[in-house]
Every structure is written in structure tokens, then in C-alpha cells.
Design a binder for these strands. Structure first.
Lengths: 345, 345
DNA sequence: ACCCAGGGTGTAACCGTTTACACCCAATCT
DNA sequence: AGATTGGGTGTAAACGGTTACACCCTGGGT
């Protein structure tokens, strides 16, 4: 086999310039180039200029891998989410990116449905390539799995049921949000309030259900298994659950969906069936994703500062990555607030 | 300064194991470890087993940087988007991730508003850390900038006006989509159709405007500068533009927004003013983002296969990265289709 | 009995950076 | 004048993998 020519289509295009090429062009040693380019040591002004010029001319870009090999820092942070679908994750990523960008870090992104192996694989693939990791695993067992994985690289958990006291974890007030929303509905006169639940294994879902039950209880209302419909946070699930609600007798006068996607699915089922919202049935969701205000009728929801959730998670991680954070706060719970729109009186 | 202890909180936690540690534990050379773990050479079965066991025990994870240094492959692909806000980008990322995951590649994500320096910086930061790059730069000048940046790493452009014939670029049929939507409105009897434009520098926006004008022309209608309102693809812009439309005399009977976000902003302005949609004014958008069907009234739009756009872009890139793609297709135009819902008759 | 093929393994060079250390030299201090 | 500083620079050793090459050894062919 003949020596592969470096670039066939554009024969003039040279291989990526290395620090040695720059050194040769500037007539200095590689050490000086490194110092000049990183301001990491004393360099005479005119030398510095010569080096900078040479680097520009050759379009020199330091090889990240080589650098991270010796410094053992990658300047990259990993983000592992259960999914990338829907506005919730889009907002989270946005918050994460904002914070990372501000600190000059790159983002290595991966999604893995909550299948055990898939998450584990993605995790392994990232490990060593990143200085730290933001991990969202509302699925219970996974959180357990990673809690013990305490090597060097710091991890921040989002919305994950990690009990270990020195784990860094940021969550939202799921219980309180659900509790207040249900109390609000009761105050408005509702007595039969259905809930569309999330998946059993999902910690957020479980907390929201707990809030729902506790609110009913505190209001002196019977909780009723019939009123707790199964769901999985998808629009389709909300759609189906709402249809099931319509068959219940006596019919509930309110539906509380454990997230907005399901609430929107429910709205669309009710619309198809000609059921008036909120007059015949009131609907409320959870998350307050940006579109909630635009659906018809505008959706009441428990507002979650989603982008902030990502941003704060990243801030926590940055704190751990850029130095010891012994004294720093390790557990953050973001408050939720009620947003009442036309879908509930 | 005393020698920094490797890990203060968990003194037993050892530093990340290297290939040499594994070699020692398995009583073989590093070469054999490498061969055994990568199946890259002959190794006796029991040796292989010994090595695998040792690697597992030590939780060995190869250092990506070191590997990419010698192999000059990173197993990572870069994604550079103008923004991360809104459902459009969320869908794009989802498509990109799906394709990359299938091929076993990692994703390095960055966003950079179309400010020249910002994009350039993000670009530089990625260079050398990735095997290839998906770049979305609807802003004209940027596309020019990168078209000349033809070093080794392949680039795929999404929705960017790159004219160079050997650039890999994937776009959607902006012109055709707009053209057909406007013709549809005319066919339904509209004679005064306003458009809410995107930013001038945005190529997609320009193409959609061109489609609008051409459709009017082909239908024998005068185009009218008054009817072309400025916008920037944001909800707020749509909101303001719709208010301006209401002041025009004679009042237009239809608004065509150059994207859905602006259409939704327009709907909300019209709602506030008590203008009936579609009876008094019809509204149509572009992109058909997932929520379009849930707004009130459901929004007519030009459907764009957004996730597919990301997926196909990544496929194109993977083709270029995994081998020479001399014969492969370099330009893809995805078709758009009309989706008529209640916001337009 | 000898040669040869080829599977299995080890040695060491290499990838592109950073940085400890040694060195030179002019300026300043005694 | 000689010693001392310290700024500016170069040399070379890491970092953790991959892989060309050399080597050993066993078994089959002559």
C-alpha cells in the first residue's frame, strides 16, 4: 500500500499544525510557545508577538486530548439525561449550557432511557472524558447505583432520589407543588379530583402523588384508588387517562395531571369529546412548560423553574470541579409556585 | 506546600487505574492488555480472560485523550447551534442524538448566538476534540466564513447558505413551503396577506419571504411593502407584528408568520384584542413544531421534519467521518408539507 | 533433523502538550 | 570587582494509550 497522501481532494491543505511547527516558525522552543500562548510564564514581549503571529498564520489549535493528558483536566462536563424529548429537557439543557458557557466549559451530552445497561454504558463512555457530570435519573434504582460510584469526578444529581448525605443533589419541591395545587382545587369547590400519575419508578411522580394524597387527606376528603390513573409523563398517556376519567361515575370535576405533557394530552381528549374546560372539568398540570400558556384553554400548572434547575445544577458542579467545595451547600430544593390560568377556575 | 494527597475525603479511593496497572495485575505487558481489550491482535483465551478480569476489578476506563492522541480519532462529534431555546432546537438535537447514539458516537454540544466572535470561539474550542462537526448557521456571513475552513475535519451545514459545491449541506425546502402555504391562502379567498418576516441576515427567513412574494406574484396579486412586517423568529416579535397588522387599512385577512413561534405570538395578540381567528383573520406558521396542534386555535403550518433534519445531518457526517465519501450525496433538501388546521380556513 | 510459518507476547517509539529544572545573561547589590 | 538576583529561554521528562517490530516457541512439512 502506498503511503496515504495526507489529503487527496485538497493537496495543498497541510495537516493540523502542532506546537512544534509553531516553535520552528517563531524560532523558539516549544516551551516558550506554550508559555506565550497560555500566559503561563515570563516571555519577552517581542517573542510573545512572534509566537502569536506564527500561531495565527499556521491556524494552530492546541490538541485538546494532549493537553488533557498532561493536565488531567478536560474542560468538559458531561450531561446525562433520561431523554431529550419535549420542552422540559430543552429548557434544562438551555440552563445547563448557559452556566457552562459562562464558565468556559464544553458540554458532552448523552441521553439514555432509564434502561439500566444503557445508562451504565453512557456513563462509562463519559467517564474520563469529563471533569464532572450532571446526571438526571428520576428512576430509583439507578440513583442507588451511582451513589456508590464515588471516584474522583464529581457528580450532581438532578431530581434523583439519592439519600447519601454527601451526594450533591438538586431537586424541586414536588410534594409541596402538588399539595398546593390540589388544595387550591378543593378550595374552588372540587370534591372529586382525579390524578394522572407518572411511572411508579419515577421519583418525581411518586412525590407528586404523595402531595396529592396528603392534600386530600388534610381537606378531609377520601382518597380513592379509582381516581388515581396510571400514566407515564407522555401526551398519549394523558389522552388515554382523560378518556378513562370520563367513564367514571360520579364523574370527577377536576383532573390533576402529574406533568404538563399529560395535561395537554388530556385537554385534547376532552376537546374531542366536547367536554367544556373548565366548566365541566377543570384541568391542571405540573412543570409549567413554556407552551402551557398557549394551549387552549391556557393551562393552570405548578410552575417549576426548569432552566434554573439546569443552571443551578451546573453551578453546583462547577463549584466542585474548580476546587474543593467542602463547605459548599450540597442539597438544593427549588421552590415551586402555583400558576392559575383558565383551565381551572 | 505538602504533597497534595490524592483524595482527601475518601482516602481509600485510588487514582483512576491506567493500562499499566491492569498489565501489572494481569501479569502481562501493556501491549497485551490493549490487544485483549480492543480485540486488535491475537491473544490467548485465558490471557484475555485474565486481562478482562483485572480491568473490571480496577474499574479501568481508558483515557480518551490519550487514545485520541495516538489514533487521532476522538469518537466524538461536535454540534454547534445558534441557540438552544425553543422546541425547534430541542427536536434537532433529538434527531442528532438518535443518529449519533446508533453509531456509538458522543456529542459535544455548544451554542453560540450568531455573533461572529462567539461562533468562532466555540468553533475553535471544538476543533481537535471532535472527528466532525454539525454546524447550523442560518446567518449568511458565518456560512461564508466556514466554507473556507476546509482542514481535515468534515463539516455538515444545516440550513446554511453555503454555495461551495463540495460542502456538505442539508436544508429544507423553505421556498416551496412558503410558496404553497401562500397559494393555499389565496385559494381560500384571501387577497391581503401579511407576512411576519425573520431577520434579514437569516437565510431561511429570506427564502420564505421569497416564496411568499413569488406566490403572490403568480396569483396576480400586488406585493406591498406595508404587508411585510419585520420579525426575528421570537414570540415577542410575532406579538408586536400582529398588533401592527391590526392597524393597517384595509386590514389584511390573513397573516403568514415565517415561523411558528411568531405565529403563536400573533395568536396571543389577536386573542387579547378579541379578533376572531380564523373568521376575522387567518393565521399560518412555519415549522410545525409539536405544540402547533395544541395552541388555540390549532395552528396551520408548513410541516418541517425537524428531528429528521438533525438525523439526516448526522448521517451525512457519519458517512464522511467513517471513511471517504467521495461518491456520496453532499446536498440534501428535505421536502416540506402543508398542515392545515383551524387557524386558517 | 532441519526449516519455516505463524500464534502469542514484550519492548519501545510515538502522539502533542505542559512544566520542572538547568542555564544564560544583564542588572543590581555589596 | 565579584556575588546575587531574577527575567527569559531551552531541554527533556512526563501523561496514558496504540502499534511496529523483534522475539520466542510450538508444530507440521520436507
Amino acid at each position: 500500500m502506498p503511503t496515504r497522501s495526507p489529503r487527496s481532494r485538497h493537496p495543498e491543505a497541510p495537516r493540523q499544525a502542532t506546537i512544534r511547527d509553531v516553535a520552528r516558525a517563531a524560532r523558539v522552543s516549544v516551551a516558550t510557545v506554550s508559555r506565550a500562548l497560555n500566559d503561563s510564564g515570563p516571555v519577552r514581549d517581542d517573542t510573545r508577538r512572534r509566537v502569536r503571529d506564527a500561531a495565527d498564520n499556521l491556524r494552530f489549535t492546541p490538541h485538546g486530548g494532549a493537553r488533557s493528558l498532561i493536565t488531567s483536566r478536560t474542560n468538559t462536563l458531561g450531561v446525562l439525561l433520561p431523554d431529550l424529548y419535549g420542552e422540559f429537557f430543552s429548557e434544562i439543557i438551555r440552563g445547563i449550557d448557559r452556566s457552562a458557557q459562562r464558565a468556559g466549559y464544553q458540554l458532552l451530552l448523552s441521553s439514555a432511557r432509564n434502561a439500566h445497561d444503557e445508562v451504565h454504558g453512557a456513563f462509562r463512555a463519559m467517564y474520563g472524558r469529563v471533569d464532572g457530570l450532571v446526571l438526571m435519573a428520576p428512576d430509583v434504582e439507578l440513583a442507588e447505583l451511582f451513589a456508590q460510584h464515588r471516584d474522583g469526578t464529581p457528580i450532581v444529581f438532578i431530581n434523583s432520589p439519592v439519600t447519601s448525605p454527601d451526594a450533591r443533589v438538586i431537586t424541586i419541591d414536588n410534594h409541596g407543588g402538588a399539595y398546593h395545587m390540589v388544595r387550591h382545587l378543593v378550595r374552588k369547590g372540587h370534591r372529586r379530583i382525579a390524578i394522572i400519575r407518572g411511572a411508579d419508578s419515577n421519583h418525581d411522580a411518586a412525590e407528586r402523588l404523595r402531595g396529592y394524597r396528603e392534600a386530600l387527606d388534610d381537606c378531609g376528603l377520601q382518597s380513592d384508588a379509582q381516581l388515581e390513573l396510571q400514566g407515564d409523563f407522555s401526551e398519549g398517556a394523558g389522552y388515554r387517562a382523560a378518556r378513562a376519567v370520563l367513564k367514571l361515575r360520579p364523574r370527577p370535576t377536576a383532573i390533576f395531571a402529574a406533568n404538563d405533557a399529560m395535561a395537554i394530552g388530556a385537554l385534547s381528549a376532552l376537546g374531542e369529546e366536547g367536554v367544556a374546560v373548565p366548566n365541566e372539568i377543570a384541568v391542571a398540570g405540573f412543570d409549567d412548560i413554556p407552551i402551557a400558556r398557549y394551549v387552549s384553554p391556557p393551562l393552570s400548572s405548578v410552575h417549576v423553574p426548569i432552566a434554573q434547575l439546569g443552571e443551578r445544577a451546573m453551578d453546583l458542579l462547577l463549584g466542585a470541579v474548580t476546587g474543593p467545595d467542602e463547605g459548599a451547600v450540597r442539597r438544593v430544593v427549588l421552590p415551586t409556585t402555583l400558576v392559575i390560568r383558565k383551565s381551572s377556575p
